Computed example of a mutant assay.
Amino acid sequence: MRERREALRAQTCLVGRAAFERGSSVIINCVVQALSAAGARVQFPAGVTVPSHFDLFVGRSARPCRARVMWRHASEVGVTFLEGRTAPDVIPG
């Protein structure tokens, strides 16, 4: 399969939180399994319906990254970060 990403993703296991509606206090816990400055691979609990756009908080960050779903497979989604927000730093290791 040909790799189409512009930035390499680091394999991670970071706690994430997703806000599916802007301004909502409802937060869905998730796991960020791969991360780059441009996007992420995110695992959600089984049965969660992930919308096409949402705010993703990575690790302890209080600042969300607006994310757009590029692909879906079971409870995983691949996202790209939008709106010129500062994407989270990739943790080396």
Rank of each mutant, 00 (worst) to 15 (best):
M1T: 04
E3C: 06
R4Y: 12
R5G: 15
E6T: 08
L8G: 10
L8Y: 12
A10G: 14
A10N: 06
Q11I: 05
Q11S: 13
T12G: 00
C13A: 05
L14C: 11
L14H: 02
R17E: 14
A18Q: 08
A19C: 03
F20W: 14
E21D: 07
E21P: 00
G23Q: 11
G23F: 13
S24T: 15
S24V: 13
S25I: 07
V26L: 14
V26S: 14
I27G: 01
I27D: 00
I28K: 06
I28P: 04
I28C: 04
N29P: 11
C30L: 02
V31L: 06
V32C: 01
V32N: 00
L35C: 04
A38M: 09
G39C: 15
R41A: 13
V42Q: 03
V42I: 09
Q43W: 08
Q43T: 10
Q43Y: 05
F44G: 00
P45G: 02
G47N: 05
V48E: 14
T49K: 10
V50E: 03
F54R: 01
F54G: 01
D55A: 10
D55C: 11
D55P: 07
L56A: 05
F57K: 08
F57H: 07
F57S: 07
F57L: 11
G59W: 12
S61K: 02
P64T: 05
C65V: 15
C65H: 01
R68S: 13
R68H: 05
R68P: 00
R72A: 03
R72P: 12
A74R: 13
E76D: 15
T80L: 08
F81D: 00
E83A: 14
G84R: 10
G84Q: 07
G84P: 13
T86A: 14
T86C: 06
T86N: 04
A87Y: 04
A87I: 05
A87M: 12
P88C: 09
P88V: 12
P88W: 15
D89H: 12
V90M: 06
V90F: 07
I91E: 13
I91F: 09
I91H: 08
P92K: 14
